[in-house]
C-alpha cells in the first residue's frame, strides 16, 4: 500500500480537509477547529457513541452518524451544524437536564462543567420537558473523593478510564434504563472498595460535578486531564 492510499479527503461544512484513514469525523473536525458537541467522548479513552450529541449529517444518507465513531471516507460530505442537528442536540441535552438534579448554583463544578458549558453554547435557556426530581444518593465514604449521583450523566468516562488506563475496573454500571447508575465494585460504598487505588483519574475525567475531590471550593475544583494524552502517548510509543 502506498502512503497516499491511507489518506482520505473529505468535505466538512463545505470546506475541504484531508485525514488519515483511521481518523474519525470528530478527530478531523477538532484538528481544524470545527465545533461538534460531545459529552461521552474523551480523547484517550475508547469511544462508546452513547451521548448522541455528536451526530452529524452525511450527504447521501438520511441517517445521522455519531462523529466520534464514524471513520472518514473518501469524498464524504459532512454537515455538522444544520438546524435539524441543533434541534436534536438541544432536545437531547434538555432530556439530560430533566433526568437527575442538576442545580448549578449549589454544584462544585459550577463554571467549569462540560454540560453547563455545552448548554450555554447550544443556547438552551430553559427546559421544556418536566423534571423528574429523583431521589439520588451521595456517597462520601471515600477518604478523598465523593460521588454525587444527582449530577451524574452516565457518560461512563469514569468506568472507561478506571478500566482502560488505571486497570482497576472499580467502576461499572448497574441497572437498566432510567435506573442505571455508576457503582464501585459490586455496588459497595466507594470508601470500602478493595480495588480502588485512589488515583483520582475518574474524578478528573468526569464532565460534571458528579465526581469531585473533598475539601475543594467551587473555584478550586478544576478537572485536570493532562495525564490522559500523556499516558496514551507513552503507551503508543511502547507498542
Amino acid at each position: 500500500m502506498t502512503v497516499a492510499a491511507g489518506i482520505k479527503t473529505l468535505k466538512i461544512d463545505d470546506r475541504d480537509f484531508s485525514a488519515r484513514a483511521q481518523e474519525t469525523i470528530l478527530d478531523v473536525a477538532r484538528q481544524n477547529g470545527i465545533f461538534i458537541p460531545s459529552l461521552c467522548e474523551l480523547k484517550g479513552l475508547s469511544e462508546v457513541g452513547a451521548c448522541r450529541l455528536c451526530l452529524v449529517e452525511i450527504k447521501g444518507s438520511n441517517r445521522l452518524f455519531p462523529a466520534c465513531v464514524t471513520p472518514v471516507e473518501e469524498g464524504m460530505e459532512v454537515t455538522t451544524n444544520s438546524e435539524r442537528l441543533q434541534r436534536y442536540r438541544r432536545s437531547i441535552l434538555e432530556l439530560l437536564f430533566t433526568e437527575r438534579n442538576h442545580v448549578c448554583s449549589v454544584c462544585v463544578s459550577n463554571g467549569h462543567c462540560e454540560m453547563q458549558t455545552l448548554a450555554q453554547k447550544l443556547e438552551i435557556t430553559h427546559v421544556r420537558f418536566p423534571y423528574r426530581y429523583p431521589k439520588a444518593e451521595v456517597d462520601a465514604s471515600h477518604q478523598r473523593f465523593v460521588v454525587d449521583h444527582n449530577r451524574c450523566i452516565l457518560c461512563s468516562r469514569c468506568v472507561r478510564v478506571c478500566d482502560e488506563i488505571e486497570g482497576a475496573h472499580t467502576w461499572d454500571l448497574k441497572g437498566r434504563g432510567i435506573h442505571v447508575r455508576v457503582i464501585t465494585d459490586l455496588d459497595e460504598p466507594w470508601g470500602s472498595s478493595e480495588t480502588c487505588t485512589g488515583c483520582g483519574k475518574c474524578v478528573h475525567v468526569c464532565p460534571t460535578g458528579a465526581l469531585f475531590e473533598k475539601g475543594r471550593s467551587v473555584a478550586e475544583m478544576m478537572k485536570r486531564r493532562q495525564f490522559l494524552p500523556y499516558l496514551t502517548l507513552m503507551r503508543e510509543d511502547r507498542e
Binding site: R52, R176, G177
Partner: peptide
C-alpha cells in the same frame, strides 16, 4: 420499551421515560 431500555444512550434512556409520562 422504557423498562427494557439498557440506559446507554440518552434519547432512549430519558426519551422513553418522558414519552411514557
Amino acid at each position: 420499551c422504557m423498562t427494557e431500555s439498557c440506559g446507554k444512550c440518552i434519547p432512549c434512556r430519558v426519551g422513553t421515560y418522558q414519552v411514557h409520562e
